Simulated scan of single mutants.
Amino acid sequence: MLTIRKAEIADAALLSEMGYASYRHHFAPLWREPAELEDFLTQEYSVPALQQSLQSTTGNWFIAEDVAPVGFAKVTWHRAVDEQGPAGTLLHKLYLLPGETRKGYGEQLLAEVERLAQLRGERFIWLEVLDANPNAQRFYLRQGFTHLKDTQFSTASQQSTLHILGKPLSL
C-alpha cells in the first residue's frame, strides 16, 4: 500500500539519491552535454540544495513509499503561471524511481498533491512537461490537465520546449 508523507530536512540524502537515480534514468539521454547534466543535477539534487529547498515556506517535497521509497513530488503553493495568471499549485516534480512506473503510483501521488492543494484553498494546479517526454504528457492529459502554452528551457548548448499544462481543482 502506498503511503505519501511530507519530506523533512532529515530526508535530504534520500531525496538526493532518488533524484539522481530517477532523473538520470528518465532524462539523461536528452542532454547533449554531460557536464551540463551534472551541473543541473547538483543544482537540483545535491544534499545542500535539497536541505535549503526543504526549509522553504512556499512549497513542500513529498515522498511516496510502498515498503521502500518509490518516488517523490515537489510543489510550490500558489504560484502564477505568468503575469496574467492563473495562480495555483505548481507541481515542479513528480518522479518515480526506475522500475516503479506503470504501477498506479503516479496517479496516487498526483491525487494526494491535488488533495493537499485543495485543503490550502487552491483552485488550480499546473506544471511544465518536456516536449521530448510524450509518456508524461499522455499521463497528465489522462489526469485531466490541458495544454495552456509553451515555453523554453535553455542551457549553454541546447534549448528544449516545455508544455505548460493546467487543471482546475474543485473545492
Rank of each mutant, 00 (worst) to 15 (best):
L2V: 12
T3K: 07
I4F: 01
R5K: 14
A7M: 08
A10K: 14
A12D: 11
A13F: 12
L14M: 14
L15R: 07
L15Q: 03
M18G: 06
M18S: 11
G19T: 14
Y20P: 09
H26W: 07
H26T: 15
F27P: 07
A28F: 06
P29C: 07
W31N: 09
E33D: 15
P34D: 00
P34L: 03
A35V: 14
L37N: 01
E38G: 10
D39P: 14
D39C: 10
D39W: 05
L41Y: 06
Q43M: 04
Q43F: 04
V47P: 12
V47C: 09
P48G: 04
P48T: 10
A49D: 06
L50M: 13
Q52F: 08
Q52R: 14
S53R: 11
Q55T: 14
N60R: 15
E65V: 13
D66H: 08
A68G: 07
P69D: 07
A73G: 15
K74F: 01
K74A: 05
V75M: 02
V75C: 09
V75D: 00
V75L: 03
T76N: 15
H78S: 15
V81C: 07
D82W: 12
D82P: 05
D82H: 13
G85V: 14
G85L: 08
P86S: 13
P86G: 15
P86H: 08
A87M: 14
T89H: 03
L90I: 06
L91M: 15
H92W: 05
L94Q: 02
L96W: 03
L97G: 02
L97K: 03
L97Y: 01
G99Q: 07
K103R: 15
Q108E: 12
Q108H: 13
A111L: 13
V113W: 01
R115M: 05
A117W: 02
A117F: 01
R120W: 02
R120V: 04
E122F: 09
F124C: 13
F124S: 09
I125K: 00
E128R: 06
A132G: 14
P134I: 03
Q137H: 13
F139K: 01
L141S: 15
G144K: 00
G144N: 04
T146L: 11
H147C: 05
L148D: 02
K149A: 12
K149I: 03
D150M: 01
D150S: 06
D150G: 05
Q152K: 09
F153W: 00
S154L: 11
A156Q: 02
S157M: 07
S157A: 08
Q158S: 07
Q158H: 05
L162G: 08
L165V: 12
P168V: 15
